[in-house]
Nucleic acid binder design. Structure first.
Lengths: 349, 349
DNA sequence: TGTTTAAGTGCGACCATGACA
DNA sequence: CTGTCATGGTCGCACTTAAAC
């Protein structure tokens, strides 16, 4: 399709009786050597307004070699956490004079690369990836991908990057705290039979083992169940299924520690249906501190990950990279989460 | 900031031993009159790959006068409904070869106009606004704004536009159904004392009066309470406050019809704390069919607004406008919602 | 047929020119 | 005659495309 006809700088110049150079100087008042009379300036502004002339930023970018936009690549723009980040990014980028190009990707390496190239072809100043890979990913493939991206890319910052053997500029939540904060809380409240839902990955399991050891306890495999849906809508379902399985264990757990609020909400239902009152008969904790969690009839204990700080860190690191001072030093920032104790777990056993 | 140095078409041409015209023809294989040998093509592709050359889409757009992107302007990218729409838009636009520029706006006319101009300056082919104005808006100001936007804008499609005296291309949910579907459902189940939460606007109130009249009932002002937060996080709070007030009415309502799921969830808490079991002692309905609603311990009756169909309609109308066949005919599409009956209201009085 | 050349594409930055005090 | 200010012309940006070779 073709663009609708828009007035050009020449038309404005002709109608205002000046040269295009003056129009340009008047309308973007930069450090041009072109001087103009106040009268000429007024005429230009008047004509531009009447004609609805809006300068073409694309050509400006070509000439000045200045980036117009920053790319954001994510599989989950509709996820509350990423939606919040995107909102903050949009505002921060705008304040700095950049547009934000949002692309929705999946985790197929070829598709990913295609998205990446497309964004680069828009001459973006940088890119933010929320997130690059999940724990289910093939390490080898991601490594290749990351390498190719770094080669052709501008500044790129990644979210939730936990592969320390391959350092990328990234902002991550301190995963250990994410797990140990609610776990300690439950242990301190006297719970000993705790099922950890959504913590099946080796890394997460090891953190759990570590904390349990501090309390003189051993970890039991069946009390640590996996399940991190790639489609976040499924998290509720998974939480429900895993909670159902958990309640069948013997001894029956007195607490369910869920890695996410959505899983925890799914677990609520299972417990209530089993006649267990959440926050009295059984403790449940979540993670991510979604807005709804504080509004549940029994409000949910969760781990807040400081989304605003998180997004701000993304912006800061990206801007540092874009300014290309110390371009080779990777910036890795860990956000330390904090526990929000609410009704669902606020009782001693 | 300046863009990082990227290889230019000339460098590729030089290294491949051909002219830039051939590089261009090889890499975007369009209907150029430039022919080239398979051998030359291979060399070009090889060199481009090695150098990491990616064509600059901005110049291509300037030359071809083809739009590169479509703008999306919204105050609430983090809202589940709009997040879902944004996700679908991103995919649809990509399939059609466009990028998506997302800007976060507020409802101040000046700021809005600034955003609008900025997006237009990116030579977008069209724009989607989610949504343009809320019911609290000054009609006069919005009218002026819409007029100015239409003048300088390319194709623009708006969401949730209910001012029929000023027609814009738009996709809207059939507001009357949104209200009458759950209301009829409650009336059919024998409820007579129904408080409508979040339905204080004249338009909404009139629909309620209409439906009640069909059942031989009169509407009572205090059973129809206002409150549509501009910040959607506050919806839970408002739902709670309005539900609290509702329960104090005499006769006490047997049903609460909330315009939104978030308000309904807020109302859940109030009812349970008052010793009323939702779905048995009191009926509650919501609107928007958010994902969490089906996962509540007592699942929530709600009105589904077919978000996918909604987003698809936005794309279809925008594309029709962009192709500029019948540019002057406004396209208005109403999405008819449907009721999803769940546990929270599935009982006869 | 294969390849090069030249003419655009909208705009910005610089420079030479000119008017005027 | 010099200095200041206003203005138009020209070139360049990175690429596409029609036409020439």
């Amino acid at each position: 399709m073709q663009l609708a006809k828009r007035p050009s700088i020449r038309e404005v110049a002709a109608l205002a009786g000046v040269s295009p150079a003056v129009v340009s100087a008047v309308l973007n008042g930069t450090n041009s050597t072109v001087r103009f009379s106040p009268d000429a300036a007024n005429r230009v502004r008047q004509v531009a307004e009447n004609l609805g002339y809006i300068p073409n930023k694309l050509t400006r970018s070509i000439i000045r070699k200045s980036p117009l936009a920053i790319g954001v690549l994510t599989p989950w723009p509709d996820h509350e956490k990423y939606g919040k980040i995107i909102k903050i990014l949009a505002q921060e980028f705008r304040n700095r004079g950049y547009h934000m190009i949002v692309e929705v990707c999946d985790f197929d390496p070829d598709n990913f690369l295609r998205h990446f190239r497309d964004i680069v072809s828009m001459q973006v100043g940088g890119m933010i990836i929320l997130p690059f890979a999940t724990s289910q990913f093939d390490k080898e493939a991601v490594f290749k991908l990351a390498t190719r991206c770094r080669r052709m890319s501008p500044a790129t910052v990644v979210v939730d990057w936990y592969w320390q053997e391959m350092i990328l500029d990234s902002v991550n939540v301190d995963m250990k705290q994410l797990i140990s904060l609610p776990l300690r809380h439950l242990l301190d409240n006297g719970h000993r039979d705790i099922v950890c839902i959504g913590c099946g990955s080796p890394r997460r399991a090891s953190y759990i083992t570590e904390v349990l050891a501090e309390y003189g306890l051993e970890s039991r495999g069946e009390y640590c169940t996996s399940g991190l849906a790639q489609i976040y809508k499924q998290d509720y379902e998974e939480g429900r299924m895993l909670a159902e399985a958990a309640l069948k264990l013997s001894p029956r757990p007195t607490a369910l520690m869920c890695i996410q609020d959505r899983m925890a909400i799914g677990a609520y239902k299972v417990c209530e249906l089993a006649g267990l009152k959440v926050g009295r008969d059984i403790a449940i904790t979540g993670g991510d501190n979604m807005i709804m969690s504080q509004h549940m009839t029994v409000s949910l204990t969760t781990v807040d990950i400081h989304t605003e700080k998180f997004a701000q860190a993304l912006v800061d690191i990206l801007m540092a990279k874009m300014s290309r001072e110390n371009p080779d030093i990777p910036h890795v920032l860990e956000i330390v989460p904090h526990l929000v104790v609410r009704e669902s777990s606020d009782f001693k056993l």
